[in-house]
Design a protein around this nucleic acid. Structure first.
Lengths: 270, 270
DNA sequence: CGAGAACTTGATATATGTCAAGAGGCGTGG
DNA sequence: CCACGCCTCTTGACATATATCAAGTTCTCG
């Protein structure tokens, strides 16, 4: 699947009012949408977790009037970097990665997104990054001009975008902190904990979590090579902190140790 | 100087509609406010570049009614990480750095700010990072509750915040890309070019630019040590790409080469 | 059951960090 | 105005975390 549209980006992360002392929040932010709120998006059939949360039923109905639901296969793109930003997307099922490419081909994963997260919002005219599914999934897309109309009709919606955006920004700064100051094991530990938290927030009880991202994906997200990610995971396994279940199942046995490592509480710098 | 207030963060970066293929934008974003627009903020005495740009004179007058102007000495904090987020600040003169601290004391500079930039906006209750001046300067502070009132009175202001925020987010993602994928010289080159561009955008013609940030500041921003930053700068100097003028003046002699290096166009990875 | 993809692990290379000494600029005070 | 002292920067030698290269293994899916 491939569409020539989409763009920018926006997402929710930390409960407002919490100080960011903890880099776990970085990754946490990077992978966490507003997965807790209710309301059913009529057309999408999904919970209106991200965008529509503050809207009433009439508004939701209004909103879903022009939205379309699409199925996406693993590794397919939802939109590409540089595409005209014509639609805004809500990821309704599955997990996606956001990627940014340099002129010379170097690539970086900017973040991961889950069911309920919003993708591709930007005031610009083109998508600043691409989005690809890691699993099979579905998205609900809404024309951007329609969204602007909805902003005018439901001002609360615009405020919601602002809040989501500020939280996303805080999450990005956490990630910057992690990339600039964490060593390999700290980054991987923070990533694993935040992945687990993101899934728990979406109602997956654990103790075994999905890990649809490959070592290469994780490495591109954390600024490491896939081998270094693999070595960190092996080290955790040997310490009894985690247990692997096949290639895409992971169990956090000693979460406290992982949190300690992934929170920047010491061990490495002072 | 030290106040027990302040918080979150928000800023403008790239002209809307520009695709982010270029990591220079990262740093560019990180140091660039909306320095081009007019209007004079009555109480501040300064151009209302960041926040107030879309407001008319009456609104500006209204807005400045409760704002206060303060002078800040070099290395003094405007607000600290964790402070209650009571005010929003506009930097009216000078250059500041935004810092984030980990529990174990490791620190990271998440961005630099210049005259016209907005500091400390957040929907949360505490500042997620601290802001310190690098030079002597002045800030204009506005009570946050007052800002919320202004949002209600001038809806365009809220939209402005959203746009600023999305651009800031794009800039953060550029920085993430640079931290995750650039080597030391590429990061320093991107930083220098973006610093020059930020100053040009604010009307400083060059060719000699201020560099009030120390090697340590730059290193903390780029995820490098001060020695590595120093070596990169020395290497550029030896290649004739830059010339240093005292400890805080820098001249970009061969900007094209710096841009090439700092744009992720090759040389290192492919 | 077979083949490919993803992962693991080892050996080695290298970019950057660390430690240390010295030089240069800038401000202060005589 | 000069001189001293501090702070920042520079440069070198060395250490090390991570990247790179290369097999081999395990899982997954057809």
């Amino acid at each position: 699947m491939k569409w020539p549209e989409g763009h920018g980006e926006l997402r929710a992360t930390r409960p407002p009012g919490q100080v960011i002392m903890n880099p776990l929040d970085a990754t946490r932010g990077m992978m966490d949408g507003l997965g807790t709120e209710a309301n059913v998006c009529v057309k999408c059939g999904s919970r209106s977790i991200g965008l529509c949360a503050p809207l009433d039923v009439a508004a939701l109905d209004d909103m879903s009037g022009e939205s379309e639901r699409l199925t996406v296969e693993p590794r397919d793109a939802i939109f590409h970097q540089g595409d005209p930003a014509r639609y805004v997307y809500t990821l309704t099922e599955g997990m996606a990665r956001l990627t940014r490419v340099l002129p010379d081909g170097r690539q970086s994963v900017i973040g991961f997104r889950f069911a309920g997260d919003l993708l591709g919002f930007t005031p610009g005219s083109e998508h600043a990054f691409g989005a690809e599914m890691l699993t099979r999934g579905t998205v609900c897309r809404l024309d951007r001009r329609r969204l602007e109309q909805l902003f005018r009709r439901y001002p609360v919606l615009e405020r919601r975008f602002l809040d989501l955006c500020v939280k996303e920004l805080a999450a990005s700064q956490d990630h910057i902190l992690a990339l600039g100051r964490f060593n390999a094991e700290e980054r991987v530990a923070a990533f694993l904990v935040s992945l687990a938290e993101a899934q728990e927030r979406r109602g997956r009880p654990g103790p075994v979590f999905d890990l649809p991202a490959t070592r290469a994906d994780i490495g591109e997200f954390l600024g490491l090579t896939l081998e270094t990610v693999s070595r960190a995971i092996s080290a955790f396994r040997k310490r009894g902190w985690i247990r692997l279940h096949g290639h895409s199942g992971i169990e956090l046995v000693d979460r406290e140790s992982l949190i300690g490592l992934g929170s920047g509480e010491g061990s490495c710098a002072a």
